[in-house]
């Protein structure tokens, strides 16, 4: 099983990678990509099943917080059954998103405002070095430059400093990060395709 998985990973990966440059492999590449989409959808179900098992175990064993798990399972099965029955495109199912998912997630994001503000205040107490000071100053500058005052904008700040920071200084750093990420992706992918890394459990 281990070598089968290794061979499958390398083989399918190489076919798709070569398909970038060899048009003749496009049909095979498309087929594999379709398989991958199907497996990704299945993997989503696996994740949901795993969630059911975890919380189901909590409920059956009456562990601490099992009442919350029971509530979670109830909501999960209700949403899943109604979703299967009506389809996710049904207005009532979309209402489920509007009424439950959007308010909760949006409120959690709103809480982040308080948390970030608090963290930024505490930063210099925790770590007062050059990078922290530059970080805070830049953040303050960008926040101040993103707002307007009742009497209008602060010209140089909004018209010069903010664009320059964002399009020159921050862009250089961001680009460096993006290139670094791309290089990391390249090396990691190659290690997988060469069988050096087997994150799928091949070892």
């Amino acid at each position: 099983m281990r070598y089968v998985a290794l061979v499958l990973a390398i083989l399918t990966g190489l076919i798709v990678l070569v398909g970038y440059f060899v048009p003749a492999l496009a049909p095979v590449q498309d087929m594999l990509l379709t398989w991958s989409i199907i497996l990704a959808g299945t993997a989503t179900l696996v994740g949901v099943f795993n969630l059911i098992l975890v919380h189901g175990t909590k409920v059956t064993k009456r562990e601490k917080g099992s009442i919350y798990s029971a509530l979670l399972l109830f909501c999960l099965f209700a949403a899943f059954i109604f979703g299967l029955a009506l389809g996710p495109d049904h207005p009532d199912i979309r209402l489920l998103v509007d009424v439950v998912i959007v308010p909760v997630e949006a409120t959690l994001m709103a809480l982040l405002a308080v948390t970030l503000l608090y963290a930024s205040i505490r930063l210099l107490r925790r770590r007062a070095n050059v990078m922290s000071v530059v970080f805070i100053l830049t953040a303050v500058l960008m926040l101040f430059a993103s707002a307007t005052l009742p009497f209008g904008e602060i010209g140089p700040l909004n018209d010069f400093l903010r664009p320059w920071f964002q399009h020159v200084l921050a862009l250089g750093g961001a680009r460096g990060i993006l290139i670094g990420v791309a290089l990391g992706t390249l090396t990691t992918g190659l290690r997988v395709l060469f069988g050096a890394d087997r994150p799928y459990g091949g070892k």
Binding site: L117, S120, L124, R125, A128, I136, V140, L143, A147
Partner: peptide, 24 residues
Amino acid sequence: YSVGLLIAVAAIILGGLWNLVTGF
């Protein structure tokens, strides 16, 4: 949005200075 940003700027500056001093 603007008020929120200005509050953040003020809080970070004041709080940061305070924490900087106390941290030192």
